[in-house]
Lab assay of single mutants.
Amino acid sequence: MGFKLLSKLLVYLTASIMAIASPLAFSVDSSGEYPTVSEIPVGEVRLYQIADGVWSHIATQSFDGAVYPSNGLIVRDGDELLLIDTAWGAKNTAALLAEIEKQIGLPVTRAVSTHFHDDRVGGVDVLRAAGVATYASPSTRRLAEVEGNEIPTHSLEGLSSSGDAVRFGPVELFYPGAAHSTDNLIVYVPSASVLYGGCAIYELSRTSAGNVADADLAEWPTSIERIQQHYPEAQFVIPGHGLPGGLDLLKHTTNVVKAHTNRSVVE
């Protein structure tokens, strides 16, 4: 069995187990497998329904001669939608809004960016022009300005110390501490036991640490421990890039980060 097929099978099995364990909360999309990078042309966006009122959005972007996937989250909030992270750029984010209108038909009224990198804030200006209120932590807003990236308009308070959590509509926002970046936030959907790890969490097929220019490698494993301790009931975990899975993604990420750190020390 090929690795790609095995990865998709694991996603399907995880979703099936969740649907059985929580039949009222989960209505997993039966329309197909989780979209992969090879299936999404740059400039297009796919939506994948995880649970009743919960979707991931998947886009792709060219970077350094390669094409990478990027995940975000959409959560229903009454007759409105909360968006977590842009679709990595203005063109993708405009396509995301169009796809949401086509498939869901509810307005996106608020959006949260989970850290300051372009795959999370690139497209904020498109959201703002569409009347979406954009939010991020003060740290993310400051770092985005320093980096020359787009800056969300509103500040999220109460997320300055490791372990801080605040309720934001249908989700809980959690600051686990520094990891992929010093400002990275985690998003949890309690009604569906869905954990969105953003770039602080890796997919299972990833074996290298990737972009760690703004990471705190020493603190990252401790931050992941905080996530595990705060959300032990999480059933569906979405990484910032690639295929979702279960809580095993947290341990896998820790292993990859520690291996990278150990290699760096040896070198």
Score class of each variant (00 low, 15 high):
E225I: 08
D248I: 11
R141L: 10
D29E: 10
A209C: 04
G246I: 05
D216H: 08
G198H: 04
G163T: 08
S160E: 14
A66Q: 15
Q49H: 10
A19D: 15
I17K: 15
L243P: 09
L185E: 02
V67K: 15
S70D: 00
S31I: 07
V187P: 02
V121R: 02
V256L: 10
T207R: 12
S113K: 01
G242F: 04
G43N: 12
L185P: 03
L185D: 02
T93D: 01
A136F: 04
A136Y: 02
T253F: 03
Y188S: 02
E80W: 05
Q61L: 09
E33I: 09
G72H: 01
R263Q: 14
S191W: 13
P107I: 10
N211V: 09
K258Y: 08
T109P: 05
G131L: 06
G43T: 05
A87L: 03
G32D: 08
G197W: 03
V121Q: 01
Q235P: 06
D52S: 11
I40D: 10
K102P: 06
L249D: 01
L159M: 08
L204R: 14
P23H: 15
P239S: 02
T109V: 13
G245L: 02
L83Y: 02
L127H: 04
D119A: 06
P152A: 02
L13N: 06
V67Q: 15
E145V: 10
T222P: 08
N184Y: 03
V112W: 04
N92S: 06
R120W: 01
Y188R: 00
P35H: 14
I58S: 14
L173Y: 04
A259R: 12
L247P: 13
P176Q: 02
I84M: 07
L204P: 05
A178T: 07
T14W: 03
A87K: 00
S264G: 11
N184I: 04
T36L: 08
G169K: 04
E39Y: 14
V45A: 07
G197Y: 01
S22Y: 07
V45G: 03
G163A: 09
S38K: 06
W55T: 02
S31T: 12
S27A: 15
S161W: 11
K8R: 08
A179K: 01
E219G: 08
A90W: 08
V112G: 04
D164E: 13
A136N: 03
D29H: 09
F3M: 13
D164L: 10
Y196A: 01
G2N: 14
H252D: 02
Q228T: 15
L185W: 02
Y231C: 05
L243S: 14
V37N: 15
A15H: 13
I104Q: 00
D85Y: 02
A136E: 04
T134F: 01
K8I: 08
H252K: 04
A165L: 15
R120A: 04
M18E: 13
A259M: 10
T261L: 11
L127Q: 00
A218Y: 11
Y48L: 15
A66T: 11
P170D: 06
T36H: 08
Y48R: 12
D79Q: 11
Q49V: 11
S155W: 07
G169S: 05
V212W: 05
G246Q: 10
W220V: 00
T114Q: 00
Y68S: 09
V194S: 03
E147P: 05
V37S: 15
E145W: 12
S38L: 10
T140Q: 03
V171S: 02
V256Q: 04
